[in-house]
Design a protein around this nucleic acid. Structure first.
Lengths: 241, 241
DNA sequence: GGGCGGCATTGACGTCCGTCAAGTTCGTGT
DNA sequence: ACACGAACTTGACGGACGTCAATGCCGCCC
């Protein structure tokens, strides 16, 4: 674990966080309470079962949420990008973490103890509403994933995933305006497989299928899509209103 | 649509709602703003695509959330019991309803306009936190459903569903202490099928399988489980930590 | 450098579940 | 009471995806 210096006032990701509704004074409370650290890929932020004593706020990088099954295989449940806050759910409900958090890319993350959070939640109702809006978005996303997992084919779910990763890639980097695009996938094959609820073998086969159909070309973690509309055609999204 | 009289102060379900943190005065705001109505089974509370102008609060009965696919088939997404509030997510995010709400049993539901809600959210931070806790619980539930849909067999998912319905049945009625139990299912076969992401035909076959194995006996909407531990044995829950 | 362990790919095979079609039961309205 | 439609059941069939096993690839550590 490496500690780093960070500053809430100059944080590039702040406008994406819930803290954007805080006054200067209130932001100072966060800034004083925070502890910052950097993680390399694979490093663990917290473990499933650990008590949740605060909130993690991602300044930059990429964090993944995992569960482990009995065989020791880890299942990637979701990803958190810069500006996302991690753990508010368990802080509020008082439960222990139900998943582990692991850096998927080199990341800088701040930890804010619950005392500061609770103080500000009492003081500024807008902060709670911000968290509530975040929860509402997360909830919509979770329900969509369930619906997709039971209504869409593996092909379509993988196409969805690629488009979501593209969107995130562009939000956190350089957007492209052309019909074609390339990007570096932040995930291993088996992590992508877990995200859409399939086995690594099926992931390999779906990738090969996409290559054979000219939808995308894969080389390691690099992916190139020559015609975005071909990828859109694999969505099968027509049949749900 | 039938209107009914209701009273927040004497409401039997209030202790389960978010309003339980309100003072007498604040409860009066809700009580004045609410409009109460009763619905028979099949009656629609609101439609997918309607604008969300307030919150629905279930006094008693059972409400289901549905989406429609292009074929006109309705997919049951979830259920709301007495004390649950419906629509806070869309109110906060300003979106239209993304699903319809339909009474599954005779129900009494109050509608509270957003102006009262927003007034109280600003005034009493504890109310926002209550909603946040609700959202956190809903989120955990949604993620569990996704995990189950990709890791568990149809058998196991149906066993889960029966146990959830049992829990709800006992919370809203008479609990039993014995190893066996009976209950009336509040759902049609196809609604149960949709909840666990399978087709009605597969639902029928799973029910027959349970009967053949002596796990449960079904007669119309009545279900009898002679040995609860047999049902627990069908959960296959061992392999997820 | 050599060996080891995790990730990825590929093939063969099996099975679970979706699809289609037909038939039955149930509920509702006239 | 009868008729109609919706919900439910059952069977036959096929395909998509999981499972198992073998192999290749690559980075890491002794």
């Amino acid at each position: 674990m490496t500690f780093s210096d960070a500053n809430c006032f100059t944080c590039q990701s702040r406008r994406r966080t819930e803290w954007c509704v805080l006054s200067e004074d209130e932001l100072g409370v966060i800034d004083k309470a925070k502890k910052s650290r950097t993680l390399g890929p694979g490093e663990i932020l917290f473990h499933q079962g650990d008590p949740c004593g605060g909130i993690h706020c991602i300044e930059n990088g990429l964090i993944g949420a995992r569960k482990l099954d009995a065989d020791g295989n880890s299942i990637l449940l979701g990803m958190a990008y810069p500006g996302d806050t991690l753990g508010y759910r368990f802080l509020l409900s008082g439960e222990d973490y139900q998943a582990s958090a692991e850096a998927l890319k080199p990341s800088t993350v701040c930890y804010i103890d619950q005392s500061a959070i609770r103080f500000l939640l009492e003081k500024n109702p807008a902060l709670g509403l911000r968290f509530l809006q975040r929860a509402a978005r997360d909830l919509n996303e979770a329900e969509d994933r369930f619906l997709q997992s039971v209504t869409l084919s593996v092909r379509a779910r993988f196409a969805h995933l690629l488009l979501v990763l593209k969107k995130r890639y562009e939000e956190n980097g350089v957007p492209r305006k052309t019909t074609e695009f390339s990007m570096d996938l932040p995930l291993s094959r088996q992590d992508m497989a877990a995200l859409i609820g399939i086995r690594p073998e099926t992931m390999s086969r779906t990738i090969r299928q996409f290559e054979e159909e000219g939808i995308a070309r894969f080389s390691g973690r690099r992916v190139h899509v020559p015609h975005t509309e071909k990828l859109l055609g694999a969505l099968e999204t027509d049949n749900i209103v």
